[in-house]
């Protein structure tokens, strides 16, 4: 009897509830569209005939598909070098940040450490103040890290936010695990490598994702630090420069002029096609990685929220 009544109630949703449902589905469909379509629009334009694209004909699906934009993008001087720098700083920087965060997160959970709380506070405090860009730049100059690849990597190694994440995670692991290993005669390093590392892998994955995205997206440090050695420009900076050079970049990529006129119009690079192609190249790694690692991002922000 009661069951039937409950069921009936579900069927006869009030008018307001139905409106709410409709509103939510429509609203979030629009939100999803607004977040996804710009990327889709740019992508289909890079693989469509460039003359159609220039006329604004490519809105929902690609027409006259060709991949010449990508081919010639690799001919743009400096782009390949910039991609190399971006990949290198992402790989090396991520390894550095993840290792340091794992190690420090573990070490700062060692209550026996001499003045542990003081050191921890000194590290965490750096989240909340900033000397400013000029003092930072001058420091980097003193350390010979301007116009130097390591200037991208070294300052990012000790990252307080990621240390908080790992430390919180380490503290959620039963203390007995470490104690048992220590009774068996394991030193602190053995405990870290043999006992702790396998257990904290999930949080290391989270930190790795955050760190990699930060490195890949980093723009400001390159803008400040690279004053003369343009070979060290990462992709982000190169993309920014291309966006600001408007039409003069056309000359960069148009080297071939062999094909017939009609075909040429479809595949000749325009300033817009070059910009869009570079945009896709820069955004693609994130797009490909993101859906698979989303749960790690979410986990990270939730742990971070518990202990900020």
């Amino acid at each position: 009897m009661t069951e039937i009544r409950v069921k009936k109630k579900k069927i006869h949703q009030s008018f307001g509830d139905t409106m709410l449902s409709v509103f939510c589905y429509v609203f979030f469909a629009i939100c999803a569209f607004l977040c996804l379509y710009p990327f889709y629009y740019i992508f289909i334009n890079t693989i469509s005939a460039n003359d159609l694209s220039a006329r604004g004909d490519i809105l929902f699906w690609p027409k006259g598909i060709h991949f010449k934009n990508y081919k010639s993008a690799f001919g743009i001087s400096g782009l390949f070098q910039a991609a190399k720098i971006s990949v290198m700083r992402t790989v090396i920087g991520t390894i550095g940040t993840v290792s340091a965060s794992a190690f420090l997160g573990f070490m700062f959970s060692q209550e026996k450490m001499w003045h542990r709380k003081l050191w921890y506070r000194i590290v965490i405090a750096t989240m909340y103040f900033n000397a400013g860009i000029i003092p930072w730049f001058l420091t980097m100059q003193t350390l010979h890290l301007t116009n130097n690849f390591w200037g991208f990597v070294l300052p990012a190694i000790v990252s307080p936010f990621h240390i908080v994440l790992t430390k919180t995670f380490v503290e959620s692991i039963p203390k007995e695990l470490q104690e048992a290993a220590e009774i068996d005669g394991a030193g602190i390093m053995t405990v870290f490598f043999k006992v702790m590392l396998p257990v904290i892998k999930p949080i290391m994955a989270t930190v790795a994702i955050f760190a990699a995205v930060n490195q890949w997206n980093a723009f400001q440090d390159a803008l400040l630090l690279i004053t003369s050695n343009t070979k060290l420009y990462p992709l982000q900076l190169v993309l920014y420069n291309y966006l600001n050079q408007a039409s003069s970049i056309k000359a960069l990529a148009n080297t071939s002029s062999s094909s017939s006129l009609a075909a040429a119009a479809a595949t000749t690079q325009t300033a817009t096609s070059i910009r869009m192609t570079i945009t896709v190249i820069v955004v693609l790694p994130i797009m490909m990685v993101y859906p698979f690692f989303q749960k790690y991002f979410v986990k990270g922000i939730m742990i971070g929220a518990v202990k900020g």
């Binding site: 977040c35 920014y240 993101y290």
Partner: peptide, 15 residues
């Protein structure tokens, strides 16, 4: 929706 709306957060300002 959740995946798609969080995506822009992970691209740089340049992008």
């Amino acid at each position: 929706v959740q995946t798609v709306t969080t995506l822009p957060n992970f691209i740089s300002w340049v992008l």
